Measured scan of single mutants.
Amino acid sequence: MQAFVKTLTGKTITLEVEPSDTIENVKAKIQDKEGIPPDQQRLIFAGKQLEDGRTLSDYNIQKESTLHLVLR
């Protein structure tokens, strides 16, 4: 499924993900596309910070959801 990641600069990245993907996995995909190390990434969805060990389905993130990427 497709999900979108919006950065603070307003850029939107499109990712191909599965509901079973972990947040860690998603961060690795963002690193592949953008070169941002996962340890600098914080992903926010519905106002919550997403934890590495959880999956997209844990957070009820469905296709075409938009996550927000904040860098630390």
Rank of each mutant, 00 (worst) to 15 (best):
M1Y: 12
M1V: 06
M1W: 12
Q2T: 15
Q2D: 05
A3W: 05
A3F: 14
A3K: 01
A3E: 02
V5W: 02
V5L: 05
V5H: 01
V5I: 13
V5Q: 01
K6Y: 10
T7H: 06
T7F: 15
T7E: 03
T9I: 07
G10N: 06
G10M: 04
G10F: 04
G10P: 02
K11M: 10
T12G: 03
T12I: 15
T12A: 04
I13W: 06
I13T: 03
T14L: 11
T14W: 08
L15H: 00
L15A: 01
L15G: 00
E16P: 04
V17K: 00
E18D: 12
P19A: 10
P19I: 08
S20Q: 11
S20A: 09
D21C: 05
D21F: 07
D21W: 10
D21H: 05
D21T: 10
D21A: 06
T22E: 02
T22L: 11
I23E: 00
I23V: 10
I23R: 00
E24G: 12
E24W: 15
E24M: 13
E24H: 11
N25Y: 11
N25S: 14
V26C: 03
V26R: 00
V26K: 00
K27N: 01
K27S: 01
A28T: 10
A28R: 15
A28V: 12
K29M: 13
K29C: 03
K29G: 03
K29V: 04
I30F: 02
I30N: 01
I30T: 01
Q31K: 09
Q31C: 10
D32S: 11
D32R: 12
E34G: 06
E34T: 15
E34R: 05
E34I: 15
G35N: 08
G35K: 07
I36M: 05
P37V: 06
P37F: 06
P38H: 11
P38G: 08
P38W: 12
D39G: 10
Q40P: 02
Q40G: 06
Q41R: 01
Q41C: 05
Q41E: 01
Q41M: 15
R42I: 15
R42D: 11
R42T: 15
R42P: 01
L43H: 00
I44P: 00
I44C: 11
F45K: 03
F45T: 02
F45H: 08
F45L: 06
F45R: 02
A46W: 08
G47R: 04
G47I: 01
G47F: 05
K48G: 06
Q49E: 15
Q49C: 12
Q49L: 14
L50Q: 01
L50F: 02
L50D: 00
D52I: 05
D52S: 06
D52Q: 05
G53H: 15
G53N: 12
G53K: 12
R54G: 06
R54T: 07
T55Y: 06
T55G: 02
T55Q: 08
T55N: 05
T55M: 09
T55D: 03
L56G: 01
S57D: 09
D58Q: 07
D58S: 14
D58F: 14
Y59S: 02
Y59H: 03
Y59K: 00
Y59W: 02
Y59T: 01
I61K: 03
I61A: 03
I61W: 06
I61Q: 03
Q62M: 12
Q62I: 13
K63L: 08
E64I: 06
E64S: 09
E64Y: 14
S65W: 06
S65Y: 08
T66S: 06
L67S: 01
L67Q: 01
H68Q: 10
H68C: 10
H68E: 11
H68G: 04
H68Y: 14
H68T: 13
L69N: 00
L69G: 01
V70W: 10
L71S: 08
R72Q: 14
R72G: 11
